[in-house]
């Protein structure tokens, strides 16, 4: 399955999108991780990420991303 990433905002305000493929095991854990992310908490100049995995889409600030999710997101944006 694919994790689709759209990054908006940041000081430059330049948007980027990308996709990273994950296997079903990672995807399952990822789904739980996405579900556990809190509500989006806007902060000045932080990147805003819209993450879509299957039917689930969540929006969070970069400061709300756990490290391992951040690595995955960075890979998606290449």
């Amino acid at each position: 399955m694919n994790l689709e990433v759209a990054r908006t905002g940041g000081f430059a305000g330049i948007s980027r999108t990308g996709t990273v493929e994950v296997d079903d095991t990672v995807g399952g854990a990822l789904g739980e991780q996405l579900a556990a992310l809190g509500a989006h908490d806007p902060r000045p100049d932080r990147f805003v990420y819209r993450l879509t995995l299957g039917e689930r889409t969540v929006t969070v600030g970069e400061h709300q991303l756990p490290d391992e999710l951040r690595e995955l997101v960075d890979r998606a944006l290449g």
Binding site: A6, T8, G9, G10, F11, A12, G13, I14, S15, P42, V48, R50, T59
Partner: peptide, 26 residues
């Protein structure tokens, strides 16, 4: 690569979006 500067400079062009906290940099 980066696209075009998306900023607007007049209220008639105000961008309604959920990106970037409602287009705060736009």
């Amino acid at each position: 690569q980066l696209g075009k500067d998306p900023q607007v400079g007049d209220m008639k062009d105000y961008v309604d979006t959920s990106d970037d906290n409602g287009g705060v940099h736009t």
